[in-house]
Measured scan of single mutants.
Amino acid sequence: ENVFHPVECSYCHSESMMGFRYRCQQCHNYQLCQDCFWRGHAGGSHSNQHQMKEYTSWKS
């Protein structure tokens, strides 16, 4: 089941984030949609070496 997250992806700027959401544990307010995370995208001061937390629902 695809879950809708009402936040913007920090890389592709999609405002309709579906599926899993990934939030960086080091960068303030840096979040990736499932597609950008799986493709290994990073931007700004974010590094792929940073720990990311996976969210499967909006409330989590």
Rank of each mutant, 00 (worst) to 15 (best):
G43E: 13
Y11R: 03
Q31T: 13
N2A: 13
C24H: 00
Q31E: 14
E1Y: 11
M17C: 09
H28R: 11
G19F: 05
G19D: 10
H28M: 11
Y22A: 08
W58H: 14
S60I: 02
S45N: 07
G40L: 03
G43M: 09
Q31I: 09
R39M: 09
D35M: 10
F20H: 14
H5G: 08
G44N: 04
C36R: 01
S45R: 07
G44F: 00
W38I: 15
R23C: 15
E15M: 13
S47V: 06
G43K: 07
S45Q: 08
A42Q: 09
P6V: 09
C9G: 00
C24N: 01
G44T: 05
C24Q: 02
N2P: 08
Q31V: 13
Q49I: 06
S47G: 05
E8P: 11
N2R: 08
W58F: 10
S60T: 11
K59A: 13
H50G: 02
M18R: 14
S47I: 05
M18H: 15
A42T: 09
F4L: 10
M18W: 05
F4Q: 07
R39S: 13
E54R: 04
Y30F: 06
K59N: 12
C9A: 00
R21T: 13
Q51Y: 13
F37Y: 09
H5M: 08
H28N: 14
F4R: 09
F20I: 13
E15C: 06
M52Q: 04
F20N: 15
M18K: 12
Q25N: 08
Q49T: 13
S45K: 12
N29Q: 14
A42W: 04
E15Y: 05
R21I: 08
C33R: 01
H46D: 06
C12P: 00
S45E: 13
C27H: 01
H50L: 01
M18A: 15
N29K: 07
C12R: 01
C12K: 00
S10N: 06
W38R: 15
R21W: 10
W58C: 11
Q49S: 12
D35Y: 11
R21M: 13
V7Y: 07
C33H: 01
F20P: 15
M52F: 11
G19E: 08
S14C: 09
H50M: 02
Y30D: 02
C9M: 00
S10T: 07
N2T: 12
S10F: 04
S47F: 03
M52P: 02
H5E: 14
E15A: 10
M18Q: 15
Q26N: 12
S45P: 10
C12N: 01
H41L: 10
S60V: 12
M17A: 10
F37G: 04
M18I: 10
R23L: 11
R39A: 14
C24V: 01
N2V: 08
Q49F: 07
F37K: 11
Y55H: 07
Q51P: 08
R23M: 11
D35I: 08
Q49K: 07
D35A: 08
K59D: 15
V3D: 11
C12V: 00
C33G: 01
P6F: 08
Q26D: 15
Q26V: 15
W38P: 07
A42K: 05
H13L: 06
K59Y: 08
A42S: 12
N48S: 10
R39E: 13
H41N: 13
R23S: 13
Q49G: 14
N2M: 13
S45H: 04
T56W: 02
Y55F: 07
F4A: 10
K59T: 12
K53D: 07
E8K: 05
R23H: 15
S16Q: 12
E8N: 06
N48A: 11
M17E: 14
F20D: 14
Q34F: 03
S47C: 08
W58T: 15
M52Y: 06
Q34G: 10
K59L: 11
G43P: 01
E15Q: 13
N2S: 15
K53W: 03
F20Y: 12
D35H: 11
Q25F: 04
C36V: 00
T56L: 02
H41I: 04
S57I: 08
Q51A: 09
S14P: 01
V7G: 09
A42R: 10
L32Y: 03
Q26C: 04
E1M: 03
V7Q: 11
Y55A: 09
S60Y: 06
Q34S: 09
C9D: 00
E15S: 12
R23W: 05
L32G: 02
S57A: 13
Y11C: 05
H28F: 08
F4Y: 13
V7N: 14
V3F: 05
S57G: 10
H13K: 10
M52T: 07
K53T: 07
M17G: 13
F4W: 05
H5A: 06
C24K: 00
A42M: 10
F37R: 08
R23V: 13
R21Q: 03
E1R: 03
Q25K: 11
Q51R: 10
Y55D: 15
T56F: 01
F20K: 15
S60L: 06
C27W: 01
E15R: 12
G40K: 10
H41E: 08
F20M: 11
S16V: 11
A42H: 12
C27T: 00
N48Q: 09
Y30W: 03
G19R: 09
M18P: 14
F4H: 09
E15I: 12
K53H: 07
P6S: 10
N2H: 03
Q34Y: 07
C27G: 02
G43W: 06
Q31L: 07
M52W: 03
Y22Q: 01
M18L: 13
G44D: 13
M52E: 02
C33S: 01
F37L: 05
Q49P: 05
V7F: 03
L32Q: 03
H13I: 03
S14K: 10
F37P: 01
S47E: 10
A42I: 03
H46E: 06
T56D: 15
C12M: 00
N48T: 10
E15W: 08
R23G: 07
M18E: 14
C12D: 00
Q26R: 05
T56M: 07
F4S: 07
Y11S: 05
N2E: 12
G44V: 05
Y11L: 04
H5Q: 06
N2W: 04
H50F: 01
D35C: 08
S16A: 10
Q31H: 08
V7A: 13
Y30M: 04
